[in-house]
Design a protein around this nucleic acid. Sequence first.
DNA 1: CCACAGCATTTTGTATACAATACACAACAG
DNA 2: CTGTTGTGTATTGTATACAAAATGCTGTGG
Lengths: 229, 229
Amino acid sequence: MTDQPSPRSTPQTDHPLAIRKETLHDQVASRVRDLIIEGVLEPGSRIDETTLVRQLGVSRTPFRESLRTLAAEGLIVIRPSRGSRVRKLSPPEVRSMLEVLAHLEALVGRLACERASDADIDALLDLHNRMLAHYRARDRLPYYKLNQEFHSRLTALSANPTLIEMQSNIQARLKRIRFIGNSTPQHWADAVAEHEAMVAALKARDSAGLAEVMERHLANTWKRVQNSI
Amino acid sequence: MTDQPSPRSTPQTDHPLAIRKETLHDQVASRVRDLIIEGVLEPGSRIDETTLVRQLGVSRTPFRESLRTLAAEGLIVIRPSRGSRVRKLSPPEVRSMLEVLAHLEALVGRLACERASDADIDALLDLHNRMLAHYRARDRLPYYKLNQEFHSRLTALSANPTLIEMQSNIQARLKRIRFIGNSTPQHWADAVAEHEAMVAALKARDSAGLAEVMERHLANTWKRVQNSI
DNA sequence: CCACAGCATTTTGTATACAATACACAACAG
DNA sequence: CTGTTGTGTATTGTATACAAAATGCTGTGG
């Protein structure tokens, strides 16, 4: 749950078998990002440079650079000379994000139908079946992990890098909230049923249908989460 | 043309009448952003820290911080230990951005119809009429400036901060390209006609219609620009 | 008891110094 | 003559030192 496909500033390399070098900056950014998502750093709380820097064992320079990155990603807010805070989302802000996200998901659905290969679809179907197995066994964590993958794979099928980037940016901002929800048995069942409809629409290349289901799926996720902000 | 509503990392203040303090970092980020948009720093060209830092008269620390911001915004690319370059967009990338942008504009259209007040609409109508005057007089530059404002005001009517942010982010990335296009008399006439249709749809609160027109307007902009990448 | 001014302390912003890495060119071997 | 390795130089990455600002506290006056 720690590592996720967040937007990185440095694409690093094109060649597949090159050793991956990461600057301290990037490592720190990833680390702090995770701390925010996991809730170790709570929304609205101050980010104390001195202590965080000591805990991470780096100097202030790369740390502060990483703060600028996170600020541009919308995860923290920097007020000049007055420190940084973990961004706290107001209900209207969350609503606005979900509104956009739902709309983007609809586009994902449409494009995926148009562009995915049959092999892609079969692979996703396979993944869905594995999720079903976990659902029947009520294995929450493995289901959750596959769920992440399911959505990121589906998004990838849109074959639109900008769409993927925007989508994952919003996801990252919402991730901490989303993590809370999806709790009751009924909600879980609903989510599974929606996934079912999604793969069916994809299989049938029903682009309008898939777009509609995906938008609805997200809207429902919102409802499931709403009370727990 | 230099100052535009780009995504800023630091909202600075909430209180309306507080003196606006900007850190060196933010100033540098804005400045470099403009240099990129204006084309002084060409796509693909290396960003030489030493000379740029000297020209701007700041030290490397705030300068490098600003680079991380611009990287997160997608305007430059940083390869560890190998310097930064102005991001060069490939035609497929531009295409992917416009695909997303068109879809977002459709959402803008729908939400604007639902949420704009009558006064908002009248104000936009007024703006449109002023644009028409400039068009008839063939005053290119004033038209261009009002055009910017027209679109940003229309976007604002969606009353969705996330949507506004995402939209302006993509706009910023494309701005340099867009600046080139919109050249021939025929194209200009088409654009004006599309604006005409937009205000009409808005006035009639025809949300589906406005969404459709806005999507088409952007698609046409793409066509106008296409040959000049 | 409250309000405010002035100082001390903490925290943030910027500059600079040092270290590590990549790059370019030259010398050498095949 | 070509390819490779080594070395010097330029450039980037990180740490630290210093400056500027904000915050909190204490004491004094109302």
